[in-house]
């Protein structure tokens, strides 16, 4: 069970969080002209890197804030956690 440091609340058990997927994805702007391919990339395609990866997590049983976690997907080592605007 991971130990995740919520940037707002501090160290908490994984039990309090929900995983939110790839944290490197940017949603296309509203009303943006976009090809089918680009849109599909955004909706469906995710890399599943081995090693360092930035993920989104949601402190669902805590402050209910979404934030980012830089984590090694093989060792589960967490390098840093940060607010989305950082």
């Amino acid at each position: 069970m991971l130990n995740i440091k919520c940037p707002y609340c501090g160290d908490r058990s994984q039990k309090e969080f929900a995983y939110g997927g790839d944290g490197t994805i940017t949603r296309p702007k509203l009303n943006q002209e976009i090809s089918d391919e680009e849109w599909d990339n955004f909706v469906y395609l995710r890399k599943s890197p081995r090693g360092k990866h930035i993920e989104l997590w949601h402190h669902i049983a805590g402050c209910r804030q979404w934030f980012k976690v830089e984590r090694d997907t093989t060792t589960h080592e967490i390098f840093r956690t940060f607010k989305p605007e950082e």
């Binding site: 929900a18 939110g20 949603r27 989104l56 949601h58 669902i60 209910r64 804030q65 979404w66 989305p84 605007e85």
Partner: peptide, 14 residues
């Protein structure tokens, strides 16, 4: 739905 709304407010359209 609540998580969905929070996601858009906090991550996509802060």
């Amino acid at each position: 739905v609540l998580s969905h709304l929070e996601y858009y407010l906090q991550i996509v359209w802060p």
